[in-house]
Amino acid sequence: MHTFFDILQILLIPLASPLITGVIKKLKAKFQNRRGASVFQPYRDLWKLFHKDEVISQDASWIFRLAPCIVFAVTLAVGAIIPLIDLATFAAPAGDLLTVIYISAIGTFFLALAGLDTGSAFGGFGSSREMTVSALAEGGLLFSFLVLALVAGSANLFSIADSILTTGNFYLQPIVLAGIGFFIVLLAENGRFPFDNPATHLELTMIHEAMLLEYSGRRLALMEWAAANKLFVFMTLGANLFFPWGLMHTFSPGALAAAVVIFLLKIAALCLAIAFIESTIAKFRFFRLPDILFVSFTLNIVAIGLIK
């Protein structure tokens, strides 16, 4: 049984992530009175891209060719060491919060390098904007995790979830504040509204997409898939660290069913929140983005102050 959960721990994120983006797109369509594509459309898109020819710029170096694999591998690695359903998984000892933050940073680093690599004007724009946003988001991310680490007295994500499950009610205020701070970072790190518009075709406004403009075929598919993984990873972190109720301690069919259902509900709520934001507000001007990220940072500082 444990082998099954261990395999699930590794494969759940990459297998389910396209569905998550599909669900968000569907919900957005519903909010806008449209019918929208099927929730399985992202799988079909990936399938299509994997079967397409690829064009690679003559000026591209090994960084451009290798970056999609690195970025994708990073999301796989991070996805494997975060609490998903089972707290007693083999991956638990590796799930350190600093490990998660800085392994993710490797992905961002290579993504930005790949954007610069071909020397196109838009790639440079995208990389410069991505680094601006992610440098400002890092503080919010680190401090929101720090709130949890201080509450739990541990930097291990599984211990944090475990500890909040048992003692969380005493620290509800700081955890909720840090959760909001984390959600803002989630939007920033994944290029969602109000930071970036994942649906735009306007090359001058893009952040994440601008770095991918030169990619096509298989490598584009890997990049898109990695982006979906990253979003799912962040949603899972938000759902299972700040609100860990439902996570399975020891295996029993009832606990498993409850864990799965509650996890799905939490993820669905986050999808709903993202779709709602993207349907109701406009994207912010680029220079207003730091303000929102400072809000995230401030919320986390306040949360730390509230811990007794």
Binding site: Q32, N33, P194, T200, T205, E278, S279, I281
Partner: peptide, 16 residues
């Protein structure tokens, strides 16, 4: 204009 500003609700309605 609303789509380019990222205001998708207005964009979808006006194109309808």
């Amino acid at each position: 204009i609303m789509v380019d500003a990222g205001f998708n609700f207005g964009g979808a309605q006006c194109s309808r």
